[in-house]
Design a protein around this nucleic acid. Structure first.
Lengths: 341, 341
DNA sequence: ACAGCGACTGAAAACGTTTACAGATAGTGG
DNA sequence: CCACTATCTGTAAACGTTTTCAGTCGCTGT
C-alpha cells in the first residue's frame, strides 16, 4: 500500500523513474519520448492519479470556477437563470458556485468583495436594489463581474437588463384592449428596481388608454405567493371591484388567483389575471397564466457568455444589453366575450 | 501604485517591515507584540489585502467547498434541497458547488471521481438510478459522500432516503378511503428507484383495499409536466374512466390536472388528484394539490449535516436515515359527497 | 551579574503543480 | 570523427499561504 495521502506527481515520478517535470509534461501532452510517455501513463493509471486542482489553480492563477449570486434560489426566475448559466459555463469547463444572498445588502457586497480571495474567476450578480455601496464595490471589484439588472451608465461593469417597463406596459395594454376597465396592480416592494419599473409601465399603459389610475386598485407587498394571496383578498374585500389584475410576477399572480377562487370569482370570466416572468409556474396551473416573458433564460445565457468573453480578453469597454419582453397570452386573460353573462 | 498583481502576504511584510511569518500570525490572531500587530494591520488595510483562498486550500488540504449534484435544478424537489443544504453548509463556512448531471450515468460517476481533484471537501449526490458502477465508484471515493436516495446496506457511504413506498401507499389509501374506486396511476420511468417504489406503494394500497389493479389505469412516462398532460389525455381518451389519479410527482399531477380540465372534468368533483413531493407547485395552483411530503427539505438538511459531521471526524460507520412521509390533504382530493350530482 | 525563562520573531520548509533554463542525449551532415 | 542541432530530460524556482524550528530579546529571581 503506497500510503501517505493521495498519489501526486511525485509518487508517479518515483514509480516511473523519471522527474516530476517529465510527469507533468506527459500529463499535459507536451513532447516526450514514447518510452517515457508509456512509463508515466502506466504509473499514473496504476496509482489512480487525479491532478490536484487546487495546486493547479495556485500555479495557474485561475480556478475554473464562476460564482452566481442571487437572492433566493426558490424563485423560479433564478432557477431558469441558473440552468442557462450552468449550461454555458459547464461547456467552457467552468464549475459553478451558487450563492444565495437572501437579498441582504451586506451579503451582496460581500460576494463582490470575495472575488478578492480568488476563489472564483468571475461573478454573475443579480442585485435587487442598486445602492451607492454597490456601485462603489463594483468599481473596485477584484475580477470580472456581470450584473443581471440595470446599472448606471458610468459603472465600468457589464450588465444585461430586462425591460420591465415595456413588459408591464405590454401586459396592461393587452388587458385594456381586451375590454378590461378596472385593472388592478399587485406589485412587489416599491423601492426595488423591478417594483419601481413595473409600476411605471403599468401607469404608462393606463395613460395610453385614457384610464385614470386608482390608488385603491394598487397594492405593494413582497414578491411571493402568500403575499399575493393576502393582498388580493384585501383588495377584493375592500370593494375595489377590479375586472383584471396585473401582477408584478408569477408568484404574486398565482396567489392572487387563489384569492379570487376563494371569493368565488371565475378566471378569466369575472377576472382576468396576468403575471410576469413567464416562469414554469405560469404553465403549471389552471387556467394557464398569461405572463410576460422578460427573458430570464436569455439573460442568464447572455450574462454567462459575456463573463466568459471577459475572461478571455479583458480589454473591451463595459457593455449594456437589454432583452426584449414578450407577452405570452394564455387562458387566464381570455376575453370575456362569449362566456360572461 | 504598488502594481504587480493583488497584494500578498509578502507585500504586507515589506510595507510593515516584518517577516511574512509575523504577518500570517497577526492575520490569524496568534500572539504578537502590540506594535507588530498595529503595523501589520495597518499595512494590510492600506493595501486592501484579501487572503488568497487557493493558497490557503493548498496548504490546509481543505477547500471549504462542498458539491451538490442532482439531475436537474429545474425540479422543485432539488430546489428545496439546495436551499436547505445551502443554509446548513453556509452556516459552517462552506461554499456550495452545484452540478447538474442531466441524469446521465457517466456524469454522475464523473462527479464522484472528481472528488479526487480536491476541488471540494465533500459531496452530496442525488442519483436517480443506482447501478453497479455507482457502487463501485462510491466505494473508492476520494472523499466523504452522502447519497440522497436508497443504497444497499454494504456500501460504506452515508445515505438519507425517502420512504416513497409508504408515501405512495398513504396517498392511494387516502383516495380509497374517501370513496374513490377507479384510481389511476401516472408514474415516471419504471427503471428508476422512485418509479419502482412508488408503484409498489400504489399496488400495496390497492391490495389493502381489495381493489384489483387494472393495467389500463396505469401509465409510465417521464417525470414532467408535459409528460403528465400527454399521458393523462391518453388515459382519459382511452375510456378507462378513472375517478382519481395518483401521480408520482407534483409536476405529473399538474400536467394531469390540465388534461382533466381540457376534457371538461372538474377537480375534485369528477376526478380527485394527488401528487407527490409536496413541492411549492402543490400550493401554487387551483385547486391546491393534495400531495405527499417525502421530506425533501429534511433530507437536504440532514444530508448536509451528515456530511459536515463526516468532515469533522471520519471514524464512524456508514449511517442510513429514512425520512417519514406525510400526506398533505388539500382541495384537489376533497370527497365528492355534497358537491357531486 | 548571570542562569533561566517566556514571549516574540524570522528563516525555511512544505502543500502539488507548471515552467524556464540548462544539461544531456541522440541524430544529422560534412 | 567531429561539430552542430533537435529533442528530450532534470533541477529549481515559482504560485501564496501556514507552521515548525531555532533563535533573539528582555525580564525575573537569586
Amino acid at each position: 500500500m503506497p500510503e501517505g495521502g493521495p498519489p501526486t506527481i511525485v509518487s508517479i515520478a518515483e514509480r516511473a523513474g523519471v522527474s516530476i517535470a517529465s510527469v507533468s509534461r506527459v500529463l499535459n501532452g507536451v513532447g516526450a519520448r514514447p518510452e517515457t510517455v508509456r512509463r508515466v501513463e502506466r504509473a499514473a493509471a496504476e496509482l489512480g492519479y487525479v491532478p490536484n486542482a487546487v495546486a493547479q489553480s495556485l500555479k495557474g492563477g485561475r480556478t475554473k470556477q464562476l460564482t452566481f449570486a442571487m437572492q433566493d434560489i426558490g424563485n423560479p426566475v433564478y432557477v431558469a437563470m441558473v440552468r442557462q448559466i450552468q449550461a454555458v459555463t459547464r461547456a467552457a469547463g467552468y464549475r459553478l458556485l451558487l450563492h444565495s444572498t437572501d437579498a441582504v445588502l451586506e451579503e451582496e457586497l460581500a460576494v463582490v468583495r470575495s472575488l478578492g480571495d480568488r476563489t472564483s474567476d468571475g461573478l454573475i450578480l443579480c442585485p435587487i436594489r442598486i445602492t451607492p455601496e454597490h456601485i462603489e464595490v463594483l468599481k473596485s471589484a477584484a475580477g470580472p463581474v456581470v450584473v443581471i439588472g440595470s446599472l448606471p451608465g458610468d459603472v465600468p461593469v457589464d450588465a444585461v437588463a430586462a425591460d420591465s417597463v415595456t413588459g408591464a406596459r405590454l401586459a396592461v395594454t393587452h388587458l385594456a384592449e381586451t375590454g378590461r376597465e378596472r385593472i388592478a396592480f399587485l406589485n412587489g416592494p416599491l423601492d426595488t428596481v423591478p417594483g419601481h419599473n413595473r409600476r411605471q409601465g403599468y401607469l404608462k399603459a393606463l395613460a395610453d388608454h385614457g384610464i385614470v389610475p386608482e390608488p385603491a386598485l394598487e397594492r405593494a407587498t413582497s414578491f411571493g405567493l402568500a403575499a399575493g394571496r393576502a393582498a388580493m383578498l384585501d383588495l377584493l374585500d375592500s370593494g375595489a371591484a377590479p375586472d383584471a389584475v396585473f401582477c408584478a410576477n408569477d408568484q404574486l399572480a398565482l396567489g392572487a388567483g387563489q384569492a379570487a377562487h376563494e371569493r368565488g370569482l371565475r378566471i378569466p370570466e369575472d377576472l382576468a389575471l396576468v403575471g410576469m416572468d413567464d416562469s414554469e409556474l405560469a404553465r403549471a396551473g389552471w387556467p394557464p397564466l398569461t405572463s410576460v416573458d422578460l427573458g430570464s433564460e436569455e439573460r442568464g445565457r447572455t450574462a454567462a457568455r459575456m463573463l466568459l468573453e471577459r475572461l478571455a480578453q479583458d480589454a473591451t469597454a463595459a457593455r449594456r444589453i437589454t432583452t426584449a419582453p414578450r407577452l405570452v397570452v394564455r387562458a387566464s386573460s381570455a376575453s370575456r366575450r362569449g362566456s360572461a353573462s
